[in-house]
Design a binder for these strands. Structure first.
Lengths: 190, 190
DNA sequence: CGACACATGTAACACGTTACATGATTTG
DNA sequence: CAAATCATGTAACGTGTTACATGTGTCG
């Protein structure tokens, strides 16, 4: 329901047509989650179906602006006033993967953890690079970037915590001849 | 694709029928994301359609176990060997909400942040309580719980970071007569 | 003119979710 | 027996996603 509510909220600033909405959406959230233009039109159709927006007469250039209705405004207000709870978040694929890997025979959980850790660290570096380069951008886009960074850092901490728990509760399957990676048990990610 | 892959992975331990799969899934991931039993059957149908599982002859009790195929095993292996990247994660509703709130006139972003912060703190307390009570549970379930905690902590940190950035870049709209909440700028969540 | 960006729209599909119908088995 | 639990399955719907078809205006 992110796109639906996001587009609806953007319409509170005044009527917009599809292309404008995509531009505004991507300007706010940045290039993190590119928004397919087709998605905009399907979402607008559904919003119209639900009485939250209303199409305006076609302009000379062929553009079709949409206007938010009173019901739509109420819905946006409700959206902003309601906190996102844990239960309406989607299932976290990584968490599920690790949980099930633990109970699946023949899967080396440590390898899964290490693979993920490497990937997340790479992501973290990329994000940091982005942040340094895009210093003069919008506040909203910078905060989105920061959210990604905070999440990635938490993920690395959790992965290290998993490995530590694993070591504590399960003896290493075989004596490792080579140190698998260059980081300590409680890693430093600051 | 979490449920799909999760159920498929559970089948690598041997043939299971729907109810068993749900039980195994919830035993691994805990009560965090309850799994509707109907979902199990629809997912099994789709897995069969894609040639990743194969139904076994009905047992005397009426149960219909499914068996993983070679293609299914390969898919599970691929799943565990591939890290979850930022791009295949779903859009984060909270992040989008705040980003758009910033560019929407007539929305008090500070209130949005504060509402979310209160809710997340409450979630955090509930999670901590759960962790303390369920000390003797499965390792996997405990790690899932820890993941939730790490994420919630990161979220609080990010929200505080947002408020600080907001204060830095936007003057407070009006002189607050009453202190809105009892926490410092850089809050302590440890 | 041709290429490109702007702009709209639809059809088909994916996964996830819920509600509902149905039956077998156990247990008080 | 009645109720609860175990167990299967389907129908319908929601959002999100992509691919495709189509048209307009601009600019080299």
């Amino acid at each position: 329901m992110s796109i639906r509510h996001g587009l609806l909220a953007l319409l509170t600033a005044g009527p917009r047509y599809g292309y404008q909405l995509r531009a505004a959406f991507e300007e706010s959230t940045g290039a993190t989650w590119p928004l397919n233009i087709g998605q905009v039109y399907t979402t607008l159709s559904r919003l119209e179906r639900d009485g939250l927006v209303r199409p305006l007469p076609e302009e000379d250039g062929g553009q079709r602006p949409y206007e938010i209705t009173d019901a739509g405004r109420a819905e946006v207000e409700r959206w902003f006033a309601t906190a996102v709870t844990r239960t309406d978040r989607p299932r976290d694929e990584l968490v599920i993967k690790l949980a099930i890997a633990l109970t699946t025979p023949g899967v080396d959980v440590r390898t899964v953890v290490q693979t993920q850790r490497t990937a997340t660290m790479r992501t973290l570096q990329e994000l940091t690079r982005l942040k340094a380069g895009d210093a003069a951008s919008d506040l909203s886009w910078r905060l989105v970037l920061d959210a990604m960074i905070f999440q990635a850092e938490a993920e690395v901490r959790w992965l290290d915590h998993c490995e530590a728990s694993l070591t504590r509760h399960r003896p290493s399957p075989a004596a490792p001849e080579v140190a698998p990676a260059g980081h300590s048990e409680e890693a430093d990610v600051s």
